[in-house]
Every structure is written in structure tokens, then in C-alpha cells.
Amino acid sequence: ALNRGDKVRIKRTESYWYGDVGTVASVEKSGILYPVIVRFDRVNYNGFSGSASGVNTNNFAENELELVQAAA
């Protein structure tokens, strides 16, 4: 299972961040479909780089994520 702070690569092909590595911000335990919230260094097309207006978190299912580096 994934944990907060883990570095993960995104495998959801239609995602803006496909192939990117993000950090797990939190994992919901309530049984929702996309329980893993991942935070990225770059914002998506809703904002400009360096601006706070873009979105830099997204929810994924565990099977859409590949663990790159476990949290220390």
C-alpha cells in the first residue's frame, strides 16, 4: 500500500501528469474510488508555472500509480 510522502509515477494515460512523478499527500481509507491524493511540482494547464492558480494535486487509484521511492 502507498503511504504519505511516497514518490509515485503516474500511469493513467489520459492524465496531464502521465509519466510524471508526484508525492503522495494523503491516502483516504473510506473506500472511495480514487483514494490517493498526489501532489506535483508543476501545475496543470489551469494555471501558469509559478502561479497559485493552477491545480497541482489530483486523486488517483492505487493501480494507476507506480512506487518510485518509499517515504523515509
Rank of each mutant, 00 (worst) to 15 (best):
L67P: 04
N58M: 15
R12D: 06
R4V: 14
V43S: 06
K29M: 10
I32W: 09
P35G: 08
A71W: 12
L2V: 07
S49Q: 13
G47C: 15
I10T: 05
A52Y: 10
G5S: 01
A61G: 09
Y16N: 05
V38P: 00
N46D: 15
D6H: 02
R9I: 09
G54Y: 05
G31Y: 12
T23E: 13
R4C: 11
V21P: 00
Y16A: 06
R39T: 12
V8D: 04
R4M: 10
R9W: 05
G22Q: 02
W17A: 01
S26A: 12
V38I: 04
E62D: 07
G50N: 11
P35W: 12
T13Q: 14
A1I: 13
F48W: 08
A70L: 10
E28A: 11
I32Y: 09
K7W: 07
T13I: 14
E28G: 11
A25W: 12
D41I: 09
G47N: 14
F48M: 14
I10Y: 03
L65C: 04
S51F: 08
R42V: 06
P35D: 06
S53M: 12
V68Y: 04
N44A: 09
F48N: 15
F60N: 01
K7A: 05
A1W: 12
E64K: 00
T23I: 12
R39I: 14
D41R: 06
K7E: 04
R9T: 06
T57Q: 12
G54N: 05
R39H: 13
N59M: 13
V55Y: 09
A72M: 11
G47K: 05
I32G: 15
A70N: 06
G22D: 02
E66F: 04
F48V: 15
R42Y: 05
T13W: 08
N59C: 13
V24P: 01
V8F: 03
W17R: 02
A72F: 12
T23H: 04
P35K: 10
T57R: 05
E28Q: 13
S15H: 02
N58Y: 11
A52L: 12
L65Q: 02
G22V: 03
S51L: 11
V68I: 11
S49F: 09
T57K: 07
G22S: 03
E28I: 11
T23C: 10
S53T: 13
T13N: 08
K11Y: 05
T57I: 12
R42P: 04
V43Y: 15
E62H: 14
G47D: 15
Y18L: 03
G54F: 07
G54M: 06
E14S: 12
T57Y: 12
D20H: 07
G22M: 02
V36N: 01
W17S: 01
L33H: 09
N58R: 06
E14M: 07
L33C: 10
S51D: 13
L65E: 00
G22L: 04
G47L: 05
T23G: 00
N46C: 15
L67W: 04
I37S: 09
Y45W: 12
A25S: 10
E64G: 01
E28L: 14
S53F: 10
N58C: 15
L33Q: 12
V8Q: 00
G31Q: 13
N3W: 07
A72G: 14
R9Q: 05
W17Y: 05
L67N: 01
T57E: 11
A72K: 13
I37G: 03
N63I: 09
S49A: 09
